[in-house]
Design a protein around this nucleic acid. Structure first.
Lengths: 240, 240
DNA sequence: CAGCCTTCCGGACTGCGCTCAGAAATGACT
DNA sequence: AGTCATTTCTGAGCGCAGTCCGGAAGGCTG
């Protein structure tokens, strides 16, 4: 009763070019499959363009369907709902930023900087596309199930793991903390960052135009404090 | 362009019986005002009943209007949107639980227990009315502006302050932490609690039927770790 | 009570996300 | 090519949140 079994519409996301497909001929895609992928691509491009230009709320699913040159009903065979279209687009955007984040985290001077570097793509998105990012977070947290949302959740979990890794580097050699403690701390760090971002986005009710620099500084401070707590006082400024 | 000035529909919430109204006669309410308050009350009761019995999604604004015996359009002169109706109801429910929470926090054995006691009403609501609570949190975080949501935000802020107070009691005498540090810690504690709650509510996708006991235990552990961090290692089990 | 202004009410209406029953396309098999 | 089963597409239609404007009802003054 619950659930979609393994019958998800599958693909749907701009594939990470699988190095080599299993045995079967390299190009045995029937007309059907090709058409489907093409439609998928057109939908993605239409959604990306419209959402970016006009913002989530101002875009209707009709518009997207028309821009993708398909019927209004067809759209919903490729996405469970409007929100999933945005999640799809944002996932891709964040994926592109993620690599940079991971690299930056490697040579972040302090642990705090490393952690902040990890979430930088999200922060950048939050600054440059406030509305879409807000909706993205809302829907990832509270939206209906769907393949793209599931992927977003996976990405979040990965981010958390990455934070844990950074923290583990800090802890190593200092005093032995259990893995449990480190993971708890990672969750704490991430929770604070995430909610801070959300609050910030909502702040346009109070003050508009956030200073990116100030924001990053803020985040770094918060993380620093948390890490200091984890290490049991003392400065955390020498990360790795 | 932004905004509602001070022209909010005012009242709207089951008043905390103001001890004595300013000078002007005790009962100078014109028929109009009386009718308005009555309508307000009927809307509140209708919304409370329907949301509780059927759950947010299954209730239509039409239904509420009919149950309150008013026109469909009239409803929206008393609430900005459907979500505000739920927020209104939940605010009241949480307000009733809040007092108990504050008392429990006073004589909580450990600081962790005190903090958990503060959020107990929310947790209880989350357990007994999962759907409504989820919507409540979603709308408080991401919903459109409105008087009831504003009040919910205030309540959240108060809760955070209460947490800070508890923490301050812990810190007192141990080592001097700046207020800034304490407030940061309070925000951290609260963020973790809040997100944990949210995640838990969403977990019905994975596992249903949460054990209240286990949940509270979980929360207590988390808070304990955070406090230990703040205190700079050592047990935090002796709160006040 | 009579007139007038303001405030409030209500239900037809709009717009949008999403569905569904039927049409069309595709490919496998004669 | 012709038939048929299956997958995919489609757009008219539905339900619902929220709007709008014509009209009713309260409160004031004389």
């Amino acid at each position: 009763m619950t659930t979609r079994s393994a019958t998800q519409p599958a693909g749907a996301l701009p594939q990470e070019s699988p190095p080599d497909a299993p045995a079967a001929a390299a190009e045995p895609l029937g007309r059907r499959e090709r058409k489907k992928q093409d439609t998928q691509r057109r939908i993605f491009e239409a959604a990306e363009d419209l959402f970016t230009r006009k913002g989530y709320a101002a875009v209707t699913t009709q518009e997207i369907a028309e821009a993708a040159d398909i019927g209004a009903g067809t759209l919903f065979r490729y996405a469970q709902n409007k929100a999933e279209l945005l999640i799809m687009v944002m996932n891709e955007r964040l994926r592109l930023g993620a690599r940079h984040g991971l690299v930056a985290a490697q040579d972040g001077a302090s642990a705090a900087e490393a952690v902040v570097a990890l979430v930088e793509p999200l922060v950048q998105a939050a600054i440059s596309q406030r509305e879409n990012t807000t909706v993205y977070q809302r829907e990832v947290l509270f939206g209906a199930e769907g393949p793209h949302r599931a992927q977003a959740l996976t990405r979040i979990r990965d981010l958390e793991d990455a934070v844990a890794t950074v923290l583990r580097r800090c802890v190593d050699g200092r005093r032995d903390r259990t893995d449990d403690e480190v993971e708890r701390a990672a969750t704490a760090v991430f929770s604070v960052l995430y909610l801070k971002l959300v609050r910030l986005e909502l702040r346009d009710e109070y003050a508009n135009g956030v200073q990116p620099q100030a924001l990053f500084q803020e985040l770094r401070l918060d993380v620093d404090h948390l890490i200091r707590g984890l290490l049991g006082t003392g400065t955390a400024s020498t990360g790795r």
